[in-house]
Amino acid sequence: MAEPIGNMFQWLIFLGAAFVSLIASLLLVTRKNPIHSALFLVLNFLSVAVLYVLLYQQFMFIIQIFVYAGAIVMLIVFIIMLLDLEIEVRSALKIVYSKVIGGFLAVLFLFGILYSVVAKSPTGKVGSYTPDKVSANVKAVGEMLFTQYLFPFEIVSVLLAAAIIGAVILSKKIR
């Protein structure tokens, strides 16, 4: 970790991925066409997945690409194709106000987060999962998932089953 070349490459990868993710998310919120937004969402997810690799979390990298960039965005694109979306109507005054107020509140919020990040370095009990130990990342995550987090895991499986049944019932045609 101490060698300067490796650190330099980490910086390059971090800056590149951060830049791409910021640009992709900006384009996501500004494009008119929902399909373009969905594709920029995929780009954003992929560049954040690169950051996960930089943080030594290979398991989350795979999950991010499979579940987020694969399954969820595929679902969104599919729904966009099903619905015949009209062009977003821009009625005059109300929209402008909501944009200004919304943007102002969000920027205020950003300053709050930035202050809390800069003011204090993260404190907390340092755990035992050093980067060397996390190199067998999937095994470590699996062990923790099936011992300490077994109950939330089962709850999540119930939640997913409920969501599937709910989605089927909701989108069924009412006769």
Partner: peptide
């Protein structure tokens, strides 16, 4: 950076 896996879970 806290060397824990709870956040990942």
């Amino acid at each position: 950076f806290l060397q824990s896996l709870d956040g990942v879970l």
